[in-house]
């Protein structure tokens, strides 16, 4: 459903742009189109899980590069795992957040095919995870808070990734992140799939955009494993309980960041403002904790993350 509406909205937006650029601007027609767009956007009120997966993967959805440009200042990119490779699917570096030096790390997706090939569609290999860990340990050394942005279809299931230790790279991140002595905030901005997402997600505060999704596996993968049929992914979306609201109810995430009706791509500026506000709120709480308390707080959070569903004999 959302796909058709969204495509119609895009069409109207293009039409409006075209009219605006004509010599004699047809204001009346623009008004009519804007009304139409408004009505379409209003139809996006009650989105189901499948709709949200569509929005979470939208190619115009804000990406880590956008968040860095709009929320942080003075960004210095750091490349490489210092072990032999640079993995473009993890993007990160040092930046200022409201004057405070922080380390920013996230999955990177491109704006077009060429960019996407360069960053492997946001699917890291072990080198990407090792680079993320290198940046995190450095942040810990210099006492910088860490902010991660999660948006990945999953860790890359390739031959080279396996050969170079995909498993141990992810496991090491999970283990080492749990004990970091600086504040860690993770924001799930798009799709958070599998251990490939969690590997930069062991945070004191886990935030999630309203239309982002976070799950054990992609819905297609889930349908393949359970029913040997990837075409049943829409059904899997419902089954998996992967929306921000579901995860909030489970106690897996700490807060939901609102998005404009119809999805983040329709009003990115509004999204940057909301994300900024939420990061700032979490950081304010966390900077009050000392290094040991920060590690303990994070440990406890994940130790008890399933406590609402822990049935005792």
């Amino acid at each position: 459903m959302i796909k058709e509406i969204d495509e119609k909205i895009t069409e109207i937006e293009l039409e409006i742009e075209k009219l605006k650029n004509e010599e004699i601007v047809d204001e009346a027609q623009i008004y009519v189109l804007k009304r139409q767009k408004h009505d379409l956007v209003r139809m996006c009120k009650d989105l189901d899980a499948h709709d949200k997966v569509y929005l979470a993967r939208h190619k115009k959805r804000p990406k880590i590069t956008d968040y860095i440009d709009n929320i942080f200042e003075d960004f210095f990119e750091q490349k490489g795992d210092a072990l032999g490779k640079e993995d473009g699917s993890i993007y990160g570096g040092i930046a200022l957040y409201k004057g405070l030096p922080v380390t920013v790390i996230g999955h990177r997706k491109g704006n077009d095919l060429q960019e996407n090939i360069k960053c492997n569609f946001g699917m890291p290999g072990p080198e990407g995870y090792r680079k993320a860990l290198r940046l995190m340990k450095q942040a810990e050394k210099f006492g910088r808070p860490i902010i991660t942005f999660i948006d990945t279809p999953g860790a890359y299931p390739g031959l080279e990734a396996e050969t170079n230790g995909q498993s141990i790279a992810i496991a090491t991140n999970l283990a080492k992140m749990s004990a970091l002595k600086v504040p860690v905030i993770a924001v799930v901005t798009g799709e958070g799939s599998s251990g490939g997402a969690l590997a930069i997600g062991v945070a004191n505060s886990v935030l999630m955009l309203e239309n982002a999704v976070y799950s054990i596996l992609s819905p297609e993968g889930y349908a393949t494993i359970l029913w040997k049929d990837s075409s049943r992914s829409a059904e899997a979306c419902d089954m998996m309980k992967l929306t921000a609201k579901d995860l909030y109810n489970y106690g897996v995430i700490d807060d939901i960041i609102p998005e404009p009706l119809g999805g983040a791509h329709l009003n990115p500026k509004n999204v940057y403002k909301n994300v900024d506000k939420h990061i700032s709120k979490e950081l304010e709480k966390l900077v009050k904790l000392n290094p040991d308390e920060l590690a303990k707080h994070r440990y406890k959070k994940f130790r008890n993350i399933d406590s609402n569903y822990m049935n005792l004999l």
């Binding site: 999970l174 749990s178 799950s215 897996v252 994940f302």
Partner: peptide, 18 residues
């Protein structure tokens, strides 16, 4: 068990690091 299964990875790894 969905997302809570995924979280077991973090839970066990954190305990192991401790």
């Amino acid at each position: 068990e969905g997302i809570l299964s995924l979280m077991q990875m973090a839970k066990t790894s954190a305990a192991m690091e401790k």
